[in-house]
Computed example of a mutant assay.
Amino acid sequence: MEDILQVLQTSWPILLMVVIFYFLLWRPQKKQQKERANLLGSLKKGQKIVTIGGIYGEIVELDDEKVKVQVSEKVELTFARSAIANVLSKKNKEEK
């Protein structure tokens, strides 16, 4: 019985660090990954977007892996779907 108590007394700091690690690092990162997957999965033709390189444009064509973005008249660029950083909302469009 004393051995078990001693093990618990020496290992509680490690258990505390694991719990802190979970709540401060792992859980928020998983939430962010889920939000990103939802963003990339909900892309639609006609949406205004920003790429991770800072290029603004409108989606004109998309498939599972690629997105064709019109950046100006007669200029269309093809990106990997994962290169989309953000979808601009109507509020962002009105501010410009």
Rank of each mutant, 00 (worst) to 15 (best):
Glu2Thr: 14
Asp3Lys: 15
Ile4Cys: 01
Ile4Pro: 00
Leu5Val: 10
Val7Cys: 00
Leu8Gly: 08
Leu8Arg: 15
Leu8Asn: 13
Thr10Ala: 14
Thr10Tyr: 13
Pro13Lys: 04
Ile14Ser: 09
Leu15Lys: 09
Leu16Ser: 07
Met17Asp: 04
Val19Thr: 11
Val19Ala: 08
Ile20His: 06
Phe21Trp: 07
Tyr22Asp: 08
Leu25Pro: 00
Gln29Glu: 12
Lys31Gln: 12
Lys31Gly: 00
Lys31Pro: 00
Gln33Glu: 08
Lys34Val: 07
Asn38Phe: 05
Asn38His: 09
Asn38Met: 06
Leu39Cys: 02
Leu39Arg: 07
Gly41Ser: 09
Leu43Phe: 04
Lys44Gln: 13
Lys45Ala: 10
Gly46Thr: 06
Lys48Phe: 11
Val50Cys: 09
Thr51Trp: 04
Ile52Asn: 14
Gly54Phe: 02
Gly54Asn: 04
Gly57Pro: 03
Glu58Pro: 00
Glu58Asn: 12
Leu62Gly: 03
Leu62Asn: 03
Asp64Val: 08
Lys66Asn: 10
Val67Asp: 05
Val67Gly: 05
Gln70Pro: 02
Val71Gln: 12
Val71Glu: 06
Val71Leu: 10
Ser72Met: 13
Lys74Met: 05
Lys74Trp: 12
Val75Tyr: 11
Glu76Val: 15
Thr78Leu: 03
Phe79His: 03
Arg81Cys: 03
Arg81Asp: 01
Arg81Asn: 02
Arg81Val: 01
Ser82Cys: 03
Ser82His: 12
Ala83Trp: 06
Ala83Ile: 02
Ile84His: 04
Asn86Ser: 11
Asn86Gly: 01
Lys90Leu: 15
Asn92Val: 12
Lys93Val: 13
Lys93Ile: 15
Glu94Asp: 09
Lys96Met: 14
